[in-house]
Write a protein that binds this DNA or RNA. Structure first.
Lengths: 300, 300
DNA sequence: TCCTATTGTTGTCTTTAAAGCAATAGTGAT
DNA sequence: ATCACTATTGCTTTAAAGACAACAATAGGA
């Protein structure tokens, strides 16, 4: 029995919910799938699918087995790709996922350059602040704030990701410069919303963490919109230095400095990380992109 | 092409270093293996093996692919076992790995009981202080000091693993009781050697770590031998409370207490952990053992 | 409630792919 | 240089999967 083929058949049946539909996807008669899946069930000694003429659905073991099968087929495909592309020029589809702010400001310009360097690589870029499940074959490279998720994923520190407080000159003129962090509780706040929730204003004084958030004027996961509001003098904003760079240079926003530094999390090493699967570094397109991005961003 | 079969063939050829030997392991003529491996190479578009009539060895890609293949075949086998054994009574070979000290004192007595509870489970127990690669199919359950290795492995905290300093009454009579941790540097030391190296005497005073190790009399990874030396009054020993329990009860050794507690590492949460792969908990024999050990040891 | 369209299974034949076997060619050691 | 062993190749045999048709079962509509 060709177990692998049986597994692929089974997998497709689960996904389409039908033997007939799955069969047409493989261009074989439904009887083949029926037999192969039956063989598989026999060899496993368990019923994977509950069939009726109208509806096909997974049993409890079937669900467990299906998950395993997905993972195995995935690894097989990745291994295949690794070997096939070994020592060839970088090419093919490269899936990159990035935080939205970082993507706009920094990644996209670099990717244009990357594309001219490697014209045979087709970029497939998606922006999201949620961490897509790297390794589940969703993306080849991910760029995220925070820290490394697990061992099989390599994380390269690209740049600092510490949040700094800023306000417009007009806001300062109207409300005065806060002399110390505690006074911030009296000020209007524009809050960036991370996937984990809104980011408070935290301050570490003598080993003690204090929440010094002021009343909220606006909360959003859209950085530019908050920045615009900050420019209008609607409140104080905490965001990353790289996201605010253009505003700070033009003087539309100015950094507020305090004796005790502010943060948005108690975790100290906030940074932007480039993430990829260790094994996939052997695939030329992945290696090319990782090397390129690290060289271009890290030196900066 | 039955890719899986080809992969198994390839794998065996690598391991035996010969097509003929591998063929006899499968009870098929060598020509079959030759063809299947050739098919595989064709589908991958790469040469996996460097053949001559005398020796067969891996190419560079071959090595990479071989590693992948091992992992995939392994997962396949595990998945198969999970499904096959789903909802059956616990049975089969259960491989347990444990730290030597813990194994002698605590694990073995419990396992006797476990065996009578589950007579159909064949125990395969090995003792070592090195962490075997859980997940590489080497062991089903591991017991180790320290902390969890990675995400795919579940760690259950069984009991405290903090080291305490002890000495025999005769030693104390001869050298006097050290009044504070700093004085330990003047005392003879019996040092337990962990896989990471000998374990120093450390002391945290007001947030500062100090190495207060005294001159070494003996260093070993053999706990009982060190304990015997300690009983003979040859020096001060630091070991875990559970390893020393019998000596403390009989009064052969007494615990030395200090204002600032001693440790052998700066890491605070030293504990004994039971480790197993999350997925494997679905296999009855693994579930039975994990549940049994946790219940019996954790409550203790 | 009955009918019908759709879907999964089963039987039989055909096709494809792997196993078996014998012969050949190449390589490292004596 | 020869010998012994090993991988490969050509050809035949055997096993397994595909193809097609007929059948059985079920959900939905009349």
């Amino acid at each position: 029995m060709d177990q692998l083929r049986a597994m692929r058949y089974f997998s497709k049946v689960v996904e389409t919910g039908s033997f007939t539909k799955a069969a047409s996807a493989f261009n074989v008669p439904p009887s083949s799938l029926s037999r192969r899946v039956a063989d598989l069930e026999k060899s496993l000694g368990a019923t994977l699918l509950k069939r009726s003429t109208r509806i096909v659905k997974l049993t409890e073991v079937g669900q467990i087995y299906y998950n395993d099968v997905q993972q195995i087929l995935n690894q097989l495909a990745q291994s295949h790709e690794t070997v096939r592309s070994y020592q060839t020029t970088p090419m093919g589809r490269l899936r990159i996922s990035s935080m939205v702010g970082f993507g706009d400001k920094i990644l996209l310009p670099l990717l244009d350059e990357f594309s001219t360097l490697y014209p045979q690589i087709v970029l497939d870029v998606s922006f999201s602040d949620e961490l897509s499940t790297l390794g589940r074959d969703d993306v080849d490279i991910a760029i995220r704030g925070g820290y490394a998720p697990n061992e099989r994923v390599l994380a390269i520190r690209l740049m600092d990701n510490g949040f700094i407080p800023v306000a417009s000159p007009s806001y300062i003129e109207k409300h005065g410069i806060p002399n110390n962090a505690m006074e911030l509780t009296q000020h209007n706040g524009l809050y960036f919303k991370a996937p984990t929730g809104p980011t408070p204003w935290l301050c570490n004084m003598n080993g003690q963490w204090h929440d010094v958030s002021g009343p909220a004027v606006a909360i959003s996961n859209n950085g530019p919109w908050l920045a615009k509001k900050a420019c209008n003098g609607e409140g104080i904003l905490m965001s990353t230095r790289w996201a605010l760079a253009s505003y700070l240079e033009s003087g539309k926003l100015v950094e507020l400095k305090f004796e005790h530094e502010l943060a948005i999390t108690q975790h100290s090493d906030m940074a932007v990380y480039l993430l990829y699967q260790k094994q996939r570094y052997l695939v030329p397109k992945v290696k090319a992109a990782v090397d390129f991005l690290v060289e271009r961003i890290k030196v900066k």
